[in-house]
Write a protein that binds this DNA or RNA. Structure first.
Lengths: 182, 182
DNA sequence: GTCTATAGTGGGATAGAC
DNA sequence: GTCTATCCCACTATAGAC
């Protein structure tokens, strides 16, 4: 009897893998662990993700998609670049304060695999470049200088590795900076 | 071929291990690689460092010692807290721009081993706490507020993961901040 | 005695066969 | 879904060179 494939098998596996990868790091998590957490067989996993690198790339792509969905949601309330930038930073600050926060998945991957040029590394680097460009666009759109964009990018970067308690400091500061310069 | 009666065997091994650990990450480097790079036997390695964790802890301790030596050197030219803070940040900025820079070894370790509480993790966390306290001390010594210290710590954190080209932006900004507030 | 070289242990990794 | 192949891991132990 040929069994019809379960509807969300790929998503189930990917979700399980994403949780493990984010919590423990990609390198520390084995495919067997993913199989156990997903509750599927190993063959099914390799059918959907032929290698660990592809699974890691899918994990990062999923992280990006989820993150950008919540950012888009946060930014849709205002068309003013300054307000949008503040909303974006607020979104970062909130994520940093969430329980279970363990750093930026993209920066983490690049730290775990320095000098790597495989697909997950490209996904991570593409996100960082796009994210940087978005900050630049919002700052200049708000009438801010390139220097201000550089400074705000420094603070955003710092936000990702600082203690969660400092998140509000960053939000307030950037609000002050972007409103004062706009 | 028995070489000279151990002139600096421990240092030779540790130096080799430190280079590999920093460049590729602790997790990615195997003890066999360390043996090969150090040009010694496996037995000797395990005599000096009974486990990989102890070798990693020694690597981080060495990194801290070297870093603090260059910081002490940079700070000895002024007794003024504001100038000392600027020198400290300049030192960070210079290290970030050095070829082969691959991030902060302590932050990197904690990213590679999230939630770990072994000796290397304690060394890394102790350094970060002490480093943060030093910034606090310098800022308040320069007449700056706790808020300014928080902000400067954000920028310093950001400096470690930003592109090297932004290092000067950070130095200039902190110079402006600490001189304006002092 | 101090070191190198090498063989080997148990475990866990990715990956694939059936 | 189980079972296996192959490899690399940290780590140990043995045997021999200087």
């Amino acid at each position: 009897m040929a069994r019809t494939p379960a509807p969300g098998t790929r998503d189930t596996i990917l979700t399980a893998a994403a949780g493990l990868f984010y919590e423990h790091g990609v390198r520390a998590v084995g495919m067997a662990q993913v199989v156990e957490a997903a509750g599927c067989g190993k063959n099914l996993l390799y059918k959907h993700f032929p290698s660990k690198a592809e699974l890691a790339a899918a994990y990062l792509t999923l992280s990006r998609r989820e993150w950008e969905r919540s950012v888009t949601e946060a930014l849709r309330w205002s068309a003013d670049p300054a307000e949008r930038l503040i909303s974006l930073v607020t979104e970062v600050a909130e994520s940093v304060q969430r329980p279970g926060y363990r750093g930026c998945p993209f920066r983490n991957y690049l730290t775990e695999f320095p000098g790597e040029t495989d697909e997950p590394a490209r996904v991570a680097e593409a996100y960082l470049a796009d994210s940087r460009a978005q900050v630049n666009r919002l700052v200049t759109g708000a009438g801010g200088s390139g220097l201000l964009a550089d400074r705000i990018w420094l603070v955003v970067n710092g936000l990702y590795s600082a203690e969660p308690a400092q998140a509000q400091v960053a939000v307030d500061w950037i609000t002050e900076l972007v409103r004062g310069d706009a």
